[in-house]
Structures are given as structure tokens and as C-alpha cells.
Amino acid sequence: MIHVSATPVLALRGVSKRFGAVQALTDVDLEIHAGEVVALVGDNGAGKSTLVKTISGVHPIDEGGIEWEGRPVRIGRPQDAQHLGVATVYQDLALCDNLDVVANLFLGNELRQVQVLDEIGMEKRAKELLHTLSIRIPSVRIPVASLSGGQRQVVAIARALIGDPKVVILDEPTAALGVEQTAQVLDLVERLRERGHGVILISHNMEDVRAVADRVAVLRLGRNNGVFSVRDTSHEEIIAAITGATDNAVTRRKARTLTKEDAR
């Protein structure tokens, strides 16, 4: 069972964001608690990526407020978000193919004595981190180039955890993965929750969302269109919220099949 703390780690209150003549986000609210996976879903152009970028500091918000552990904060630059404890795993993984796993995990955060790398310390911590996440990689000293797509994805996620963040944002982590690798990444998301991280998961894949998320926040045309508890909500209700209507292809089909069954 999930234990949800009283104060959300991260809360967005009435956030708005404009790009020129386009109102990308209007009055959006979102709360992330520690040890909770919140899926952020919506059609293309619903504002998911923009919302994530406001949290990770790529685009500062125009109106509204962001609260971190109950106190208002301002996130104006990516560094601000990093300092608060927000780690983002981007869709294109941003790993250096020529460097080994250890070097990639610590890139930009190297353990060092003065300017000299502490390779042994890094290797030890990398092994411990990968082990606590149950990530199986042949060796931490092989170049990332020799890893499979799924292994790279888990390395990218593990890398976000080096600074021990409180909130981890995953942007479409399973989009390019096979069945087995997708399952691995979903396992990893669950382990993040067990370790008490707040996770924001962006995904188009409703199966993945239903598999790991605790709550689903739906965005539609830049506005909140409901926050649902996954366990008490049917697939159709979420689809309806995403598409913005109870009358859509899915519900019509459902109604049709039901009528047929009744007729029998």
C-alpha cells in the first residue's frame, strides 16, 4: 500500500504559460507526494511536455506558483530545479556513447579529490546504486555503446538518481522499448516509488500507466481535465478525459458490443 504524506513534495498552483499567442498552460494544478507515481497523460499538444519543462526549469512559468515541501519557490533555470531535488530523464537519453557506465552516471557530478577523479569511489557507488535498483548490466566498465536500448534507458534513469532527488520526471521512458525492456523500466519505476521518490511519468501508453501509476493527471488543451485514482477508474473514463468527451470511438464501440451481448 502507498503511504502518502500530508504535504506534497511538489505542488503546482494555477500555473499558466504562454508562448506568443499560444496559451500552452492555463491554471494547471498538480501535486506530487513522496512515494507516489503520478502519470501525466493527454493527447499530443495537451501541454504535458510544457508542464514538465516548467518544473525542470527549462521554461519559467508566467503565472501561478510552485510549492516545494509546502513553501513557495521559484524555478527559473534548470540548475534551480536540480538544487531543489528534481531530476529529469529526457526522452533522448543524453548519454555519452564513448564513455563507460560509471563515467556516464557521474557525468558533471564526478567524485574527485581536488581535480583528480576518484574512479574507485565512483565505481563502488555506481555498483551499489545499480544493485539497489536491481539493474543488471554486464559490467559498469563497458562503454554505453555496447548496451541495449533498455539498458541505456535504465542507466539514464539511474543517472538521475545520483544526486538523490526527491522528484524524478520520466518523459516517455518506454516509447522506444521492447516488451521485456518496458517491463524492466516499469519495475524500476516501482522501485523508485518504494524508495520514496515522487515520480512523474509521461506516457502515451495507457497499459503502462495503469500498470505502475497511483494517480493519473489528465491534461487537455492546456487545462486540468481531472485527476483520477488508477484503481477506482476505468480505462474508458480516462480515455474520455483525454479526448474530452464521453462520446468517442472507444465508448461508442463499447456501447455497441454491450448492446450485442445484451441482445444475445
Partner: peptide
């Protein structure tokens, strides 16, 4: 091979965008 500077040189040579996002 042994300093943070050298590591950053390799990182920029391997994937400049990844290096930038890593705060280099």
C-alpha cells in the same frame, strides 16, 4: 585520463548535447 577536465573533454567529444545537459 585522470582529471575532471579530461573526462569533460571526452564527454564533449562523445556527445556535446549530453555534456551540456549534464551541466558541463
Amino acid at each position: 585520463r585522470r582529471t575532471t577536465f579530461g573526462r569533460k573533454v571526452f564527454a564533449v567529444g562523445g556527445n556535446a548535447e549530453a555534456a551540456r545537459r549534464a551541466g558541463i
